[in-house]
């Protein structure tokens, strides 16, 4: 373009078409990256609309929504039981998945020799991360609910979710451990520390923000999972669970149940439930991002 002006020096090369291609490509990839954003915005808009209609036309009271359990009569139904159930699910999932996942990551990163067996283990973990969530639900159904005969209780759902998120926790913890520089490990060994002292006192504290970030993101994924809970049988329960052995219905299954009802009132209850679920999800992601930003400058 500007090449036409200085004929003698630069005029012999015309990059006009190349520059146009650059701009075309830029436009394409920008559109591609905006696609997701626009879709998310549309989704949020739709949910917000349902939420608004639910509050105004169906007179859904937020106070009642948070203080009353589910009910077969829409005007008496609330979300408390489902919220409590999901919080308890997360708690037990976190306990089950975190320690086993972190232990596995520490073993694989710090101890495991580079042998064929180790590589087989890591390949298996990658495969586990790709297993559809409903399969984990099926496993918990076969092993716990029907196998041991526990029935559709909360801990069975936690086991299914823990199996689901464990590979994610392992992989993100491995990455966090790998990010701790070897020079720091050597500093510890040279001070006369044993391997476990080095891991416990230096490596784990340095890697902990990354590990926690990965764990929170994994739990945020688990809290929205519906299929494994459906498989375990967490449906048609309206009461609030009081312990891990109670029957339950988590937030996603409660929303699923409501959305399947013919009554418009239930549909809008589901809309309000989705807003609550999304808020909790976004909060968890926000905490994860905050943790990552706060600590990423250190080490």
């Amino acid at each position: 373009m500007s090449t036409d002006t200085d004929e003698g020096l630069f005029g012999d090369i015309d990059l006009g078409w190349e520059h146009t291609k650059n701009k075309l490509f830029l436009g394409l990839i920008f559109a591609a990256s905006m696609f997701g954003v626009v879709m998310l915005a549309l989704l949020l808009l739709d949910v917000a609309h349902t939420f608004y209609v639910g509050l105004t036309e169906f007179n859904i009271s937020l106070v009642q929504f948070f203080t009353v359990d589910g009910s077969r009569r829409p005007e008496l139904a609330g979300f408390r039981g489902a919220i409590i159930a999901s919080v308890m699910l997360m708690l037990f999932t976190a306990i089950l998945a975190f320690f086993i996942g972190l232990g596995t990551a520490v073993y694989l990163e710090e101890y495991a020799p580079d042998t064929r067996i180790t590589r087989l283990l890591e390949a298996n973990l990658a495969n586990l991360a790709g297993v559809p969530s409903i399969v984990y639900g099926l496993l918990a159904l076969a092993a716990l609910v029907n196998g041991i005969g526990t029935g559709p209780i909360l801990i069975a759902g936690s086991v299914a979710l823990a199996l689901l998120v464990m590979p994610i926790i392992i992989v993100s913890s491995q990455e966090a451990l790998r990010a701790v520089p070897d020079s720091v490990r050597n500093g510890s060994y040279a001070t006369g520390a044993t391997k476990w002292q080095t891991i416990k006192e230096v490596v784990l504290p340095a890697a902990m923000p990354g590990i926690l970030t990965g764990t929170i993101l994994a739990l945020a994924r688990a809290i929205g999972e519906t299929a494994p809970l459906l498989m375990v049988g967490a449906l048609f329960t309206n009461r609030m669970p009081f312990g891990p052995l109670d029957r339950f219905s988590g937030m996603p299954t409660q929303i699923y149940g409501w959305a399947a009802e013919p009554s418009q009132h239930f549909i809008h209850l589901a809309g309000v439930g989705i807003v609550v679920l999304l808020s909790i999800l976004l909060t968890m992601n926000g905490v994860a991002i905050y943790l990552r930003n706060k600590y990423e400058t250190e080490v």
Binding site: P181, S183, V184, N186, Y189, A190, T191, G192, A206, V299
Partner: peptide
Amino acid sequence: PVVLRRRIGMVFQQPNPFPK
């Protein structure tokens, strides 16, 4: 070797303080 390193300390090329 752990006991040995408590008798024979080491300082490295790159400063490597712990993130503490």
